[in-house]
């Protein structure tokens, strides 16, 4: 009898706990939907203008208190020998690609977070540390981050990277669109330093207009494709280029927002508490089988 009541208590608590977790989980995924304004700020990166001076890399590190070499060292172009990706030591990097039509004018491509309109990382974050801000930035709360790295897996551009070197301080790093600077009405550090304004800061709608105008004015200079206009539901950062984007090592993406796909699967699984219910059905079954077994054991003896 005593045993029975304890079992009942456990049953009730587990069920209620599951219900709570399930409910909060659905709530979390729902919070993954974008909260940004209709016309967020953005940046247009013109890879035909970029000269690969890498001053943006230096300015970015300065703005984010990351150790950096002196600015003169960035003139050294040997950095382009290897293809680089942004990581915790450099939130943005510039890679250089051969220009088949003009040897002396290679294409330099800055890489950083695209700040998607419907960010997959926000959707995937199970603790709600990632958020899309009103001004377009996708930022995260280090205190909330548990280091699960779901955002790394979810990102269609493979941008968030993990700081492995401090095991006890799990931290995801990526470009934050200089959220702290833009709050104070400053320009993002990379935009401010760029000597040729290869990165133009402005309202996303204005940037789209500008990009279309440039393509229209110089059709021989640009491919008729604005990367980020439609990709994964649109991004705050957009690119213009003189050659196909896949040759500049950009992933080929559909126009469907990434969270749409992942959330459909996740929500499908989690609807009506299917996973917890089935898990507990399974465990209950095993328990029931074991109970029957233990009951029958003394009989056989």
């Amino acid at each position: 009898m005593k045993n029975q009541s304890r079992r009942d208590f456990l049953k009730i608590t587990t069920i209620s706990a599951t219900a709570l977790v399930g409910a909060s989980a659905t709530k979390l995924f729902a919070s993954g939907n974008p909260t940004s304004s209709i016309d967020p700020m953005g940046v247009l990166v013109d890879t035909t203008v970029c000269i690969g001076c890498r001053k943006c890399e230096w300015a970015c590190k300065k703005a984010h208190n990351i150790d950096t070499k002196p600015i003169e060292d960035y003139d050294n172009r040997s950095a382009f020998e290897n293809y680089r990706r942004p990581d915790h030591t450099s939130l943005t990097v510039v890679n250089e690609f051969r220009n088949p039509t003009a040897e002396s004018k290679p294409y330099d491509v800055k890489v950083q977070c695209m700040h998607c309109n419907e960010p997959a990382c926000v959707s995937a974050c199970i603790v709600g540390a990632m958020t899309k801000q009103e001004n377009g930035s996708v930022i995260w709360d280090t205190d909330k981050c548990i280091g699960c790295r779901f955002c790394m897996v979810a990102c269609p551009f493979q941008i968030p990277t993990f700081e492995y070197h401090k095991a006890l301080q799990p931290d995801i790093t990526k470009c934050d669109f200089c959220f702290e600077r833009t709050k104070e009405a400053l320009l993002p550090a990379c935009v401010e330093i760029c000597p040729v304004e290869a990165v133009t800061y402005g309202k996303r709608s204005e940037l789209l207009k500008l990009a279309k105008k440039r393509i229209n004015l110089y059709p021989e200079r640009y491919k008729e494709h604005i990367l980020g206009e439609h990709e994964v539901g649109g991004t705050s950062w957009m690119y213009l280029a003189g050659m196909d984007f896949d040759k500049l090592k950009f992933p080929k993406l559909s126009t469907k927002a990434a969270p749409g796909v992942s959330e459909a699967i996740q929500h499908g699984i989690f609807s009506y508490f299917v996973p917890p219910a089935s898990l507990f059905a399974l465990l209950g079954g095993i328990m029931w089988l074991n109970k029957n077994k233990s009951k029958s054991e003394p009989d056989t003896e």
């Binding site: 040729v196 304004e197 500008l210 105008k213």
Partner: peptide, 18 residues
């Protein structure tokens, strides 16, 4: 100024450098 309303033309610094 780089921060400006009309972004259709590059700013002065960019124009010089380009």
């Amino acid at each position: 100024g780089r921060k400006r309303e009309d972004i259709s033309k590059p700013d002065l610094k960019a124009a010089y450098h380009r």
